[in-house]
Nucleic acid binder design. Structure first.
Lengths: 194, 194
DNA sequence: ACCTGAACACCGTTCAAGT
DNA sequence: ACCTGAACACCGTTCAAGT
């Protein structure tokens, strides 16, 4: 668990608020999207808005907390794909997993998987984004070694592409198109002789 | 000019406000991005905020007005590329044009080029988006006929991809990555034997 | 016809006051 | 230690009142 976040335990009531907020955030994000009102989340959680801001210093921190479990699943899935299939197919299958997840969550996880570089968010990079990038890097390394994916492609590129596709098709709401775009991306990373 | 918008002329003072708002919007969008505050634009234009909302019923309408000239340039560029080069290279060159424009405007035009399906925006579809889609469709048709691009790819996919890449790398702010992603997309649309 | 600015219902964030 | 809700400075949008 190289990326588990070290945190001293919260006082009992703080922990209760933490859980309530994450639970409310799950619902409200699902209903209103990633730009949902934080005040609404605090309201739904029955907590003061300042409590939310203390426990989660940024919108991103809250999103990380909400999607942490699913990101772990995706990492576990990466390991399983690597065991079950040859390097090339393993990567492609996992990209499909990633895309399914991204479009199922209506692009919610997009900002997580790809991430930004806002100054105050640098420390958060040890969270979901690092986990998923590591998983992608390992699958990609094997696929490139096997010649199934052309060199020059980076793990960050793969995440950015899936992220980009789900961002762009989210507003548009066209799942078929998302499929075609992923197809194009997959064709694009494969070696000429694949 | 199949897509020119028919509008009866505005009264002199209304036209003056219209121009001032577009000019202010150009500056403020460039400074603050596509989510800039409309009230700030009205302020900068020296007009009441209600005037802005009457003249431009949606944020998108204002963006269309601001970027209309550049979109026309892109369409003209498409015609020139088609004249100057063979079908395959013409399309690829134009995609590079499109990408250069998108990243130069820091993803500002993204929502324009790709568009959404919000109910109240349907009539706007006769604007920039339709112009650019027509231009892309013609270049793509020729490239596909020449076998340079595999069938199944649609004009909307190309716009969505460039849009997606510029959206995703805008937050990230990484131009090198944008280049790699466009490369992947271009590889992805080409026929196997290209 | 067109314009204005106050009014309304919201935000995100912070801070004094409480327990 | 932790929580709360009012306070602050903003939004987008609308509407009465003006010219």
């Amino acid at each position: 668990m190289p990326h588990a976040v070290q945190r001293r335990p919260l006082r009992a009531d703080a922990q209760r608020n933490y859980d309530r907020i994450v639970s409310a955030a799950r619902d409200v994000f699902a209903r209103d999207g990633a730009e949902a009102a934080l005040k609404e989340i605090a309201r739904q959680a029955g907590t003061g808005s300042a409590t939310l801001h203390r426990l989660f210093p940024s919108r991103r921190a809250l999103l990380e907390a909400v999607f942490h479990d699913r990101v772990e699943e995706l990492c576990a899935m990466a390991a399983r794909r690597a065991e079950e299939s040859e390097p090339g197919p393993a990567l492609l299958a996992w990209l499909a997993d990633l895309n399914a997840y991204a479009s199922a969550s209506r692009g919610l996880a997009a900002s997580l998987l790809h991430g930004s570089r806002d100054a105050d968010l640098l420390e958060q990079n040890e969270g979901c984004q690092a986990m998923i990038t590591d998983a992608a890097r390992e699958l990609l390394r094997r696929a490139q070694q096997a010649g199934a994916v052309r060199p020059g492609v980076r793990a960050e590129d793969l995440l950015a592409l899936v992220n980009a596709i789900s961002l762009a098709t989210e507003q548009h709401g066209d799942d078929e198109q998302a499929g075609r775009l992923l197809d194009i991306a997959i064709q694009g990373i494969q070696g000429r002789a694949a």
